[in-house]
Amino acid sequence: MKVIFAGTPEFAAQALDAILAAGHEVPLVLTQPDRPAGRGMALQPSPVKQRAVAAGIEVFQPLSLKDAEAHAKVAALAADVMVVAAYGLILPQAVLDLPRFGCLNIHASLLPRWRGAAPIQRALLAGDAETGVCIMQMEAGLDTGPVLLSDAFPIEGDDTTASLHDKLAALGARLIVDALARLPLPAVSQPAEGVTYAHKIEKAEALIDWSRSAAELDRHLRAFNPFPGAQARFAGQTVKLWAAKPVAGQGEIGTILSVDRDRIVVACGDGALAVSELQKAGGKRLPVQSFLAGHPLKVGDRFDLA
């Protein structure tokens, strides 16, 4: 098939790799403009752009797809289908209608649950038992289109956003290749019940509220790993918590109940959280023993509550 591909991050790049490996023709890749990143804030191409350049594919980085030039560029290719994965731009109806089989979206949730920008993090925060990928026929609404293919797997107790991302990216790559091989596929409308929205993650959400249960805070840490990192405040300083497990324990919320070389146990609203990896602002992620060598914490110390 002749496939136009639109995507930006690593999640999308894996799908592009799979489409190319399956032998499809990809004459054009759409991706977000280069963004400043790193300590020097130099402009960096997206993972999708890097893959496209390496494969010798033309890259198009418009600020919008609503102008006549962008529309004409896509229309001129007479593509069979456009595949979209975490692209970051709204596709107007005029573009959605151009390819012979329309536009297919690779979405990292079990629709209609977690439509929107941050389905992986929201599934973890909510304590969902499973997640998965849907290949969806795109329409004007936000992730409202009918589903062509889907697959699911359980969320494990130690899954983070990073680990789920990798599993979902691999699944999405497999499913889109399967879908392209079988087009046209029957489209199943999403049910009206069970709709939830995965709103974009804001950095302010990363702050830990010790009045919540240990089970909730465990999910909180895993959902904000790797970005932006769950944040606690101690003596006015920000400390990121990267790894923890709920354990039995009680005490004044935010208070350190025990400290040893492997963990710092902190009282929560219900139960306690045994923290095993921390990071001071500007420092490295460290296991407890190494962290304590430079930042002594003791039983009775209390994390800031606001």
Rank of each mutant, 00 (worst) to 15 (best):
H295G: 00
A206S: 15
R222Y: 01
Q231G: 10
P191Q: 01
D270R: 14
F227I: 12
L207V: 15
L292S: 00
G249F: 07
S189I: 04
R212T: 04
G300Y: 01
S276N: 13
V259H: 02
P191N: 01
A248G: 12
A214P: 03
K298I: 09
Q289L: 15
R233C: 10
H199D: 05
V259W: 00
D262H: 14
P186I: 02
R263A: 15
I208Y: 12
A293C: 01
E252M: 05
A181V: 04
A293F: 04
T238M: 11
N225S: 14
G269D: 04
A206T: 09
P228Y: 14
V266W: 13
K284V: 05
P246Y: 09
Q279V: 01
G294E: 06
Q289D: 15
A230Q: 07
K200G: 06
V195C: 10
L221R: 01
Q237Y: 08
A181F: 03
F224R: 05
F227Q: 10
A281F: 11
L278M: 14
P184L: 08
A204N: 06
I256W: 04
G249H: 11
K203Y: 05
T255D: 03
K200S: 08
G254K: 04
S213V: 08
A232K: 05
A293H: 05
G251Q: 11
I253D: 05
I253C: 13
V288H: 14
P296M: 06
Q289N: 14
T255I: 03
A214V: 04
R261M: 02
Y197L: 12
G249W: 09
A293M: 11
G283F: 10
K200C: 05
Q237G: 11
E252I: 06
A243N: 06
V247W: 08
W210R: 08
V188S: 05
A215N: 04
A198T: 07
G229W: 13
Q237E: 15
A198Q: 06
W242D: 05
W242R: 13
T196G: 07
L221Y: 00
L183H: 10
L241R: 05
P191Y: 02
Q289M: 10
A267L: 14
A248R: 13
K203M: 04
I208R: 07
E202A: 11
R212C: 11
A204K: 13
E277F: 04
E216W: 00
R285E: 10
I256F: 05
K203W: 03
S213W: 10
R261E: 10
T255S: 09
A293L: 12
V265R: 08
A248M: 12
K284C: 04
G236T: 14
D218R: 00
H199L: 08
V299A: 12
R219T: 00
G294H: 00
A204W: 06
E277L: 11
R222S: 01
R219K: 01
